[in-house]
Amino acid sequence: MDWMKIGAATFLVAMLVFLLPRAKHMLKNSPKAGAGDWQAVLIPLALVVGLVVLLMMAV
């Protein structure tokens, strides 16, 4: 295994250590989704997926 893989792995582990407490905090303190909230997110995200598929077919 070359040192770039070790460097990348160390970087990702450090990211995990940094992200985990923040994720826990955000999961506890994020407000609950209201009626229609998820729909309001999923529609634009579906359009993003459509655009990416379109671009992948175009190249």
């Binding site: 994720a23 955000m26 999961l27 994020s30 609950k32 997110v41």
Partner: peptide, 8 residues
Amino acid sequence: SFMGGMLM
């Protein structure tokens, strides 16, 4: 802001 936890 309800998406915060899920995104993390």
